[in-house]
Simulated assay, not measured.
Amino acid sequence: MFDIDGVYYSQNDRVWAVDRADADKKGDIKPKRKFPQKVMVWLGVCSKGGTPSVIIDNDSVDHARYIQEVLPVALEYDNKVLGSQWTFQQDDAKPHIHHLTQRWCQHHFSSFIDKNHWPPNSPDLNPLDYSIWDEFAHAIQCQWDKVTSKATLIDELKRSVKTIRQDVVFESCSSWTNRLYRVSKTNGCYLRE
């Protein structure tokens, strides 16, 4: 999710401090509007590169929108780039685990990891979470002064996704097997880098 106030992901962005005043000094306080204009971005990656992005600029994504607007992009790109020998992975976001989404994936993907076989909260096993989103956010952060409206936000997101370095995509995808092994050795606990 991106909004016109800037890039800040509260789940990942942390400031270590003794107290609130120290946090304010170290944390570069980011003012937020009460209801900022925002858009959602979906992006997929594989060992051959990144998919086209899907930018959803109104409302949120439910299973129907996910099936209609996102999954066909993933299917077309991966079939074109990888042929028929690939496995689709997603996380446990509500639109992903919905029974109709699961049925669509079973019917259209030659192989996919269903909701019962994927750890529900697995940022250590998702190249987007442990590498690509940071690269993407940094690319748009460098141009934040150009974002003044939802339209300019969308333009900058489209421009920024094209600047994601391919070596970052390849390296993050190639480390996946090793990360899977390391998570299995920690009995599913988070990795310490």
Score class of each variant (00 low, 15 high):
residue 146 K to G: 00
residue 54 V to I: 09
residue 18 V to Q: 12
residue 126 N to Q: 11
residue 128 L to S: 03
residue 160 S to T: 09
residue 98 H to A: 11
residue 36 P to W: 11
residue 7 V to Y: 06
residue 159 R to T: 12
residue 26 K to E: 06
residue 111 S to L: 08
residue 32 K to I: 14
residue 46 C to M: 11
residue 178 N to L: 14
residue 100 L to A: 07
residue 160 S to G: 10
residue 64 A to K: 14
residue 34 K to I: 11
residue 47 S to V: 14
residue 169 V to T: 04
residue 13 D to S: 07
residue 109 F to K: 11
residue 7 V to R: 03
residue 150 K to M: 09
residue 30 K to N: 10
residue 2 F to C: 01
residue 188 G to S: 10
residue 54 V to S: 02
residue 23 A to P: 02
residue 59 D to W: 15
residue 24 D to S: 02
residue 123 P to D: 06
residue 176 W to D: 00
residue 166 Q to L: 09
residue 17 A to K: 08
residue 174 S to D: 13
residue 85 Q to D: 14
residue 191 L to N: 01
residue 74 A to D: 01
residue 96 H to R: 04
residue 91 D to H: 02
residue 49 G to T: 08
residue 26 K to G: 03
residue 27 G to K: 01
residue 134 D to V: 10
residue 143 Q to G: 00
residue 86 W to G: 00
residue 101 T to Q: 04
residue 90 Q to D: 04
residue 43 L to I: 10
residue 121 N to P: 00
residue 186 T to A: 03
residue 170 F to A: 00
residue 34 K to S: 06
residue 143 Q to F: 10
residue 13 D to M: 09
residue 164 I to F: 08
residue 183 V to L: 06
residue 161 V to F: 05
residue 18 V to N: 07
residue 9 Y to D: 08
residue 168 V to G: 00
residue 155 D to M: 14
residue 46 C to P: 08
residue 176 W to M: 07
residue 40 M to G: 00
residue 68 Q to A: 09
residue 119 P to R: 14
residue 55 I to C: 00
residue 74 A to H: 02
residue 95 P to V: 12
residue 32 K to R: 15
residue 140 I to T: 08
residue 156 E to I: 15
residue 188 G to V: 14
residue 95 P to K: 13
residue 87 T to H: 04
residue 144 W to V: 05
residue 78 D to A: 09
residue 114 D to G: 05
residue 98 H to L: 04
residue 22 D to Y: 08
residue 95 P to C: 07
residue 79 N to Y: 01
residue 99 H to V: 07
residue 72 P to Y: 14
residue 111 S to K: 15
residue 178 N to T: 15
residue 37 Q to W: 07
residue 171 E to Y: 06
residue 193 E to M: 04
residue 166 Q to I: 12
residue 21 A to C: 02
residue 107 H to S: 11
residue 73 V to H: 03
residue 90 Q to H: 08
residue 176 W to E: 03
residue 142 C to G: 05
residue 161 V to Y: 06
residue 126 N to P: 02
residue 30 K to R: 14
residue 117 H to K: 08
residue 124 D to M: 11
residue 162 K to W: 05
residue 49 G to H: 06
residue 168 V to P: 00
residue 145 D to H: 13
residue 173 C to E: 10
residue 95 P to T: 13
residue 62 D to W: 13
residue 135 E to D: 09
residue 101 T to N: 05
residue 27 G to N: 02
residue 94 K to E: 06
residue 104 W to H: 06
residue 109 F to E: 10
residue 189 C to E: 14
residue 71 L to S: 03
residue 109 F to A: 08
residue 72 P to M: 13
residue 139 A to E: 15
residue 185 K to G: 01
residue 187 N to H: 12
residue 130 Y to L: 03
residue 34 K to C: 02
residue 7 V to I: 12
residue 153 L to Q: 13
residue 175 S to N: 04
residue 27 G to S: 01
residue 38 K to V: 02
residue 96 H to G: 02
residue 139 A to S: 09
residue 166 Q to E: 10
residue 148 T to M: 07
residue 82 L to R: 02
residue 19 D to P: 05
residue 110 S to I: 14
residue 138 H to K: 15
residue 22 D to E: 11
residue 105 C to F: 09
residue 137 A to M: 05
residue 10 S to W: 10
residue 81 V to C: 01
residue 12 N to P: 01
residue 69 E to I: 10
residue 147 V to I: 15
residue 116 N to K: 08
residue 90 Q to V: 03
residue 140 I to E: 03
residue 56 I to K: 07
residue 158 K to W: 11
residue 99 H to K: 04
